[in-house]
Amino acid sequence: MCAAAAGGAWWWLSAHQAPVVELPVPPEPPRLADSAEYERCLALLREDSDAAMAYAEEWAGQGGGEGARHCTALALIGLGAPERAADMLERIARDSHAGSAARAAVLGQAGQAWMMAGDAARAYGATTMALTLEPQDADLITDRAVALAAMRRYAEALQELDQVLRLEPDRVEAMVFRASALRNLDRTEDAMRTITQALTAAPDNPEALLERGILHQLRGNEAQARADWERVVSVAPDSPAAELAQQNLALNEAGLPQR
């Protein structure tokens, strides 16, 4: 099979493709705390995880509470310990007195951390708990769909993505994920219609181009597949999508089956 496609912070997973994620720092409220220390710690996370950890630990020693614990957990992700972070994030969300939206966001981060740790089942559990708090959150539903796909439960993932698109009909990321789920269900015609819709909305979306190239390859349209993958490299040369496109181009050139 060709390399699997995805979008946004999370990559659609195949049996051989590890997830590529960004550090799940909350860019906007709701958050667990409202203080200058919390804002400083979150800002450090985007720059230097070691510095963020040191700051969070010092702040915790001064009574930083759950804000300091939250920053510590996120720093653990940046330092390559997503399993420890996921456990901590789940405990923080369980014990927090913050509102439901903030606790759901933390559980969503736990789900992302579990995906980084390679545990899709725990990721599914964390996002399911989050959705009990915020059942119409499109980001959380998308994350649960990714976890389902990682467990090869593509039909259920498709149902989740259909719900996302009912909530947000123009969400290109969900269209790309939906096309990948359909492809894995051997519904390639439906997958092509969905990816065409995504590329109509965002003609240079690298993940959508990557997925369309895969679909062209499955149809035997070698030239069109190469054109899409070369376009990915052109529009987003430093992206994970470009890396996968280059892998597929190399395999195609060598006459080997794509993964």
Rank of each mutant, 00 (worst) to 15 (best):
Q258F: 07
Q62Y: 03
Q163R: 10
A123Q: 02
A191H: 02
D50W: 13
I195L: 02
S14G: 13
W229K: 00
P19L: 10
G99W: 12
E134F: 01
L244M: 13
G220V: 10
D204I: 06
R46P: 01
A150N: 02
A102P: 01
Q159I: 08
D170W: 09
R84T: 11
A68Q: 03
A60S: 12
W229R: 00
A223G: 07
G99E: 14
A227H: 03
A113V: 03
P257N: 01
E57V: 14
P24Q: 04
A254K: 13
L79R: 14
G111C: 00
V20C: 14
A54E: 08
G63H: 12
D95W: 10
M88D: 13
H16M: 08
G63R: 09
L140W: 05
Q109P: 00
A120T: 06
E57P: 04
N205P: 05
V106D: 00
A54D: 09
L42M: 09
V21E: 14
A242D: 02
A198Y: 03
Y154N: 11
A36C: 09
D48G: 03
L215F: 04
L131K: 02
M129H: 11
L251R: 14
I141L: 15
L44Y: 00
D186L: 10
E173A: 13
Y154H: 13
A181I: 00
A149S: 14
D87Y: 14
P19A: 11
A33S: 15
A33E: 15
R226A: 08
A86T: 05
L249T: 03
L167Y: 06
T142H: 15
G64A: 05
C2M: 08
M1V: 10
A126E: 14
E39I: 07
Q163S: 08
E22G: 10
E28L: 12
A54N: 08
L256N: 05
R166T: 13
A105C: 05
E207M: 07
L74D: 01
G8Y: 03
A254R: 12
T132I: 11
E22N: 09
L13H: 12
W114P: 00
W114C: 04
A18M: 12
T194K: 01
G255M: 03
A225Q: 02
P27W: 13
A174I: 02
G7R: 05
Q17N: 11
A36L: 11
V21G: 14
Y55I: 02
E57A: 10
E156I: 01
D119P: 02
T142A: 15
A202G: 06
E37I: 07
A98F: 01
C71K: 09
D162M: 05
S49N: 07
A241N: 05
D95M: 11
E207Y: 09
A123H: 02
A93I: 09
D190L: 15
A227K: 06
R153T: 01
R219M: 13
T188E: 15
R219H: 10
A4R: 08
